[in-house]
């Protein structure tokens, strides 16, 4: 299939292959999941599976260098406290070119993918895209 005809859903990774977590969880649970998938990102969703925010390795690094509290207290924070809220997302039926433009323009590695109901359905991860289209 030519690159121009590829849709986001053709190249995204599915819900079983990247981490996401409910917005009522602790930060430590998010970190453990991030560790398991090794993608440097986790999506935070509400009870209707809509995306609230994302946490990246960079978010954690920046928080860690400024946190003054005991580490166990930091671990027990609600995930939303450490989220970048309302992240950029892309619809699953959009053309991959649009996604790549968004990724390039914003210098990001990942784009959460949502369906028509704005529910999280996948993740576009730059490495996977490159692997598939090159």
């Amino acid at each position: 299939m030519s690159r121009q005809k590829l849709l986001v859903k053709d190249l995204m990774i599915g819900l079983d292959s990247f981490p996401y977590i409910k917005n009522t969880s602790f930060l430590k649970e998010a970190i453990d999941l991030m560790d398991k998938f090794r993608l440097g990102i986790i999506c935070v969703i509400d009870e209707t599976n809509k995306i609230d925010g994302i946490i990246t390795d960079g978010d954690l690094r920046r928080n860690l260098s400024s946190v003054q509290r005991p580490l166990p207290s930091y671990f027990m924070d609600n995930v939303l406290k450490h989220c970048s809220m309302k992240p950029l997302t892309i619809k699953d039926d959009e053309n991959i070119e649009n996604a790549l433009n968004l990724i390039e323009k914003n210098e990001i590695w990942d784009l959460p993918v949502v369906n028509k109901e704005s529910q999280l359905v996948g993740l576009l991860h730059l490495h996977n895209i490159i692997r598939k289209i090159l």
Binding site: F26, P70, P72, S73, M76, D77
Partner: peptide, 8 residues
């Protein structure tokens, strides 16, 4: 108990 661990 720490107050944050009461969340458990």
């Amino acid at each position: 108990m720490s107050p944050w661990n009461m969340k458990n």
